[in-house]
Each structure stands twice: as structure tokens, then as C-alpha cells.
């Protein structure tokens, strides 16, 4: 059965690069948790403190472009963000997010129709509903589902190595 959840959203624009998600100057902090206060700081310094666990980020095209820094999806996950919904994703970010078990959903029409604070209902792999409008969404490719089902790449490798 597909998972369904309701969440408050934060709306961002196109081409949100990973330098915006977490600037280089904070990448050598000891833990990803230490980096969370600086998430999105070049664009919206106040946002990291406003995001609550369970919230969803909605953005336009090419989310996660730029640097390969895997701290980007990890910081978003550490903030408690339930999912990122975007028009499209940059490829390195996409792989990194999947490997860390961060839910990504492509939905090009959504970002222009919503604003901060809107409440959306997501039926994973099927549709998103907001303010009475419904947007269809696709399912993940099978080879990525295998990684997600294993609980991320680290767990998939632990299983391979006979540890779990």
C-alpha cells in the first residue's frame, strides 16, 4: 500500500544549487547536525530555524545542481524534511539523496501553484493534493527502489557484507 502523508511546505525557486543548501565554509564542521543551522543561508538565512520535522520543500527545476557535496541531502534530512518535491533534480544530488533515503518527487506543475505554509497531501508514487487540486506523480525506477527498500546504500552494502 502506498504511503500517504500531509505536510506543510516551504516554496523555493529554480536552480537551487548545493552551495545554497549548505555553503562550502561549513563543510568541514564535525557533523552534519552541526551544519543544519546554515542550511539555505545564502538565500534565506532564517529558513533553517523555521523548518519543522515533517515539513516538505517544494522547488522548481534543477534542484541540487552544482557541487557533488552529499552534505546537501544529509543536511535536508537532518532538518527533518520529509521530502523534496521539485520540477526536476540535478543528477548527482538525485543519486546522493536516494543513497541516504531522502524521498524525492518530481512534479513540475506544483512549484508555481504553491507558497510557504500551504498544506499538501502526498500519496507516494501516485499524486499530490493541495487546495483541492490534484497533481499526478510517478514512481521511482526499479534499481533505485532496491536501494530505498534496503534502507539506503550503507545498509545495502552491510547486507552484502553479511553484517545485517
Amino acid at each position: 500500500m502506498a504511503e500517504t502523508f500531509t505536510a506543510r511546505i516551504w516554496a523555493l525557486g529554480d536552480d537551487i544549487d548545493t552551495d545554497i543548501v549548505i555553503p562550502t565554509e561549513y563543510l568541514a564542521l564535525k557533523t552534519v547536525q552541526d551544519m543544519t543551522p546554515y542550511a539555505f543561508s545564502p538565500l534565506r538565512p532564517e529558513l533553517a530555524a523555521q523548518i519543522q520535522p515533517g515539513d516538505v520543500i517544494v522547488a522548481g527545476k534543477n534542484f541540487g545542481c552544482g557541487s557533488s557535496r552529499e552534505q546537501a541531502p544529509e543536511v535536508i534530512k537532518a532538518l527533518g524534511v520529509k521530502a523534496v518535491i521539485a520540477g526536476s533534480f540535478a543528477r548527482i544530488f538525485y543519486r546522493n539523496a536516494i543513497n541516504n533515503g531522502l524521498l524525492l518527487i518530481e512534479c513540475p506543475a506544483l512549484c508555481t501553484d504553491v507558497q510557504d505554509g500551504d498544506e499538501i497531501t502526498v500519496e507516494v508514487g501516485k499524486s499530490i493534493t493541495v487546495g483541492g487540486r490534484t497533481y499526478p506523480i510517478g514512481a521511482l525506477p526499479e534499481n533505485l527502489l532496491d536501494i530505498i527498500n534496503a534502507g539506503g546504500l550503507v545498509k545495502a552494502m552491510r547486507k552484502r557484507n553479511g553484517l545485517d
Binding site: 557533488s68 557535496r69 552529499e70 548527482i92 543519486r95 546522493n96 543513497n99 541516504n100 534499481n143 539506503g152 546504500l153 550503507v154 552494502m157 557484507n161
Partner: peptide, 18 residues
């Protein structure tokens, strides 16, 4: 091509990547 550190760790162990 560029990848994240988790995939790099898996290559160090397996020598392969999808």
C-alpha cells in the same frame, strides 16, 4: 563523473558502480 561520498565508499569496497 562526480559522485557523493556514500557511493565512493561502495566503490572502494566493490570496484564497481551502476
Amino acid at each position: 563523473s562526480g559522485i557523493g561520498y556514500t557511493e565512493m565508499a561502495s566503490i572502494l569496497g566493490t570496484g564497481t558502480l551502476w
